[in-house]
Design a protein around this nucleic acid. Structure first.
Lengths: 226, 226
DNA sequence: TAGATTGTTAATCGATTAACAATC
DNA sequence: TAGATTGTTAATCGATTAACAATC
């Protein structure tokens, strides 16, 4: 890969720069761009109009040179002496990540965590919409959370198809997670977001992301203790 | 740093290997070890006695060679042809990360998310104990969540001192996050775990980790769409 | 023994950083 | 203009990987 390779020809560099319509981003670049986007989204909410690579660095803990480097690979988005226009940069990064559109999510589990997720706008801010909430507990089925009515997991397959759901979020007890993951896979969902502690086994074409606050905490603690 | 440097002398390699009692781990190694620990902890719960680097790789998405390399830097923990003993490896990694002990957490926010965190054992499994829950809402103060009584945030400073709290978890609305972060900092907390969307401003000696499920989702979606 | 899996080497690749001219 | 900040270079450093002998 020639991204960031100083020996690359200008023509090849331009090809790389146009990665938004061509080559796949490297894992690292995609991860960092996502983080910039989160900060920018929040900065925009707060009414900030421009932001410098140094400010982005303060919030993301990514080196400011690295940030300028990541962005300049796709175009000259900044103004020297001023910084980056927040709103313009948000749409540029969305374009690069091809996540400008809306994506539908199914939320599994209507307990405390499920309710917290459904009522938060942490997903909504990034174009993810919770379009269905499921639970197995008959006491919870039929209740309303926000604008949604909790459905029984038996309806999963049909709803995934009807609502064009691409992501399943597991906010269920560890013991129930694998079974529901299987149902999501059967229904054709390709991305599973796992908030349980279960080690999920899925086919290779399905991506599982397991949320691990305790892991992040261990990591932070190590650098605090040393 | 000589970690992984093939030109290093055997003596220096041994010094590195003993990093658990000497040098600081690199950011990457510490992050990966934390992830291995999470998987191992869960594998142990499921009664698994040994685990191979390949299995660890399947669950963590870290290359199996990388895993063997990370571990062999600290000792010969595995058995050729067999794998690693799960329980032994858990305690080795805990020793390396120096997180063998118990650490006390203050949880701020007794809403859905706060309740979900308090009743989960995702922190408890890694030696983190929620020893106090706070809220500003008078309707919530005095209620009990698990074995804890919700306290008013006015008591924060005193409780942090009395209970030797090192980590503060913010499970509050974005608008309240910065104010409570300030109070945590004033009380002497050095690690803040932020579940709100607020871009927190804190002194340099304080570490903020902002949870960002939507960012992770954007990232997963990019690789799904391309 | 035969099969499996570790520990380790050697080579490559990408990430990181300091520094600074360009320029808003 | 003066100050600030980008875009880019060049150098370094650490991460990643394939391959395989050692050995359980």
């Amino acid at each position: 890969m020639s991204y960031g390779d100083p020996t690359v020809s200008p023509a090849a560099a331009e090809r790389d720069g146009a990665a938004s319509s061509g080559e796949r981003l490297s894992l690292g670049v995609a991860a960092r761009l996502s983080r910039y986007l989160q900060v920018l989204t929040q900065a925009k909410k707060m009414g900030k109009e421009t932001i410098s690579s140094q400010e982005l660095s303060d919030y993301t803990h990514v080196n400011s040179t690295q940030i300028r480097r990541d962005l300049s690979g796709f175009g000259k988005f900044g103004k020297r002496g001023v910084g980056y226009n927040v709103e313009a940069l948000v749409s540029q990064i969305r374009k690069i990540l091809r996540t400008a559109g809306q994506h539908n999510i199914a939320l599994l589990g209507a307990g405390h965590l499920g309710k917290a997720i459904a009522s938060s706008d942490i997903f909504a801010d990034h174009g993810f919409r919770v379009v269905a909430i499921f639970d197995v507990d008959p006491d919870k089925v039929g209740a309303s959370i926000g604008s949604q009515i909790v459905r029984h997991t038996g309806e999963l397959r049909q709803v995934v198809e009807d609502e064009d759901i691409v992501v399943g979020v597991l906010a269920v007890p560890t013991s129930a997670a694998q079974g529901l993951a299987n149902e999501l896979v059967d229904a054709g969902v390709k991305i599973i977001f796992n908030y349980s502690e279960s080690l999920l086994v899925v086919p290779p074409e399905v991506t599982v992301h397991t949320s691990s606050p305790a892991v992040d905490l261990l990591y932070a603690l190590y650098f605090y203790l040393t």
